[in-house]
Amino acid sequence: MDHSSNSGVAQFITVLNFQSVTLVLPAIQHSLGFSAENLQWVVSANALAFGGGLLVAGRLADIFGHRRIFVCGLLLSTISASGCGLATSQFMLVFARILQGMATALMIPAALALIIDLSPQGTLRYRALGAWGFLVRLGRGRNVAR
């Protein structure tokens, strides 16, 4: 598997991670005792951390290296996913979801930059970017053929 496909798989996983939590919200609410109002933080904490960290993470990738920041994002993603699975309180779960959003913010701009860095200009780069975009769409779980 080359670096562009690794970046694509990471993109797919992060989008799937963000979308799939909505399927288990009722179970999360029941097991951790979330109120209906506070349950939204399970989704929103991730989105806010991602959106808030995206520009900073892109700049960090430019300064410290795309591959290094991408790997840091993968490690943080693994740690935060484990934290979500092991959460025993509302606070632990929301905190782990914030870490997941930060991990995604680190990975996405670095992954895109890696694809551009490692793909020669022209048709191969366009195919790699197209595959990356396809995996985003696939991770959302919608009809890809639309």
Results as ranks from 00 to 15, higher is better:
2 D>M: 09
4 S>H: 15
4 S>G: 09
4 S>C: 11
6 N>T: 12
6 N>A: 14
7 S>F: 03
7 S>M: 10
10 A>C: 06
11 Q>V: 06
13 I>W: 01
15 V>Y: 00
15 V>K: 03
15 V>P: 01
16 L>W: 07
16 L>V: 12
20 S>A: 15
21 V>P: 00
23 L>R: 02
25 L>S: 01
26 P>Y: 14
28 I>C: 06
30 H>T: 10
33 G>P: 13
35 S>V: 05
38 N>R: 09
38 N>A: 06
39 L>W: 11
43 V>K: 01
45 A>G: 15
45 A>Q: 14
48 L>I: 15
48 L>M: 14
49 A>K: 05
49 A>P: 06
51 G>Y: 09
52 G>T: 00
52 G>Y: 03
52 G>I: 02
52 G>V: 02
53 G>S: 13
53 G>T: 12
56 V>R: 07
57 A>W: 00
59 R>H: 09
59 R>E: 02
60 L>E: 09
60 L>G: 08
60 L>F: 14
61 A>E: 01
61 A>P: 00
63 I>T: 05
69 I>Y: 02
72 C>E: 08
74 L>S: 12
74 L>W: 07
75 L>T: 15
76 L>H: 04
79 I>T: 13
80 S>I: 03
80 S>H: 03
82 S>E: 06
84 C>Q: 07
85 G>H: 01
88 T>P: 00
90 Q>H: 09
90 Q>R: 12
93 L>I: 05
95 F>M: 13
97 R>G: 00
98 I>V: 15
99 L>R: 00
100 Q>D: 04
100 Q>R: 04
104 T>Y: 02
108 I>K: 04
109 P>V: 05
109 P>E: 05
111 A>R: 09
111 A>G: 13
112 L>E: 07
112 L>A: 13
113 A>V: 13
115 I>K: 04
115 I>S: 07
115 I>F: 06
115 I>V: 15
116 I>G: 08
118 L>S: 06
119 S>R: 02
119 S>F: 03
120 P>D: 07
121 Q>I: 12
124 L>N: 11
127 R>A: 10
129 L>M: 14
130 G>L: 05
130 G>V: 03
132 W>L: 14
133 G>Y: 11
134 F>L: 15
136 V>Q: 07
137 R>F: 09
137 R>G: 10
139 G>V: 01
140 R>N: 15
144 V>F: 11
144 V>P: 08
145 A>Y: 11
146 R>D: 11
146 R>W: 14
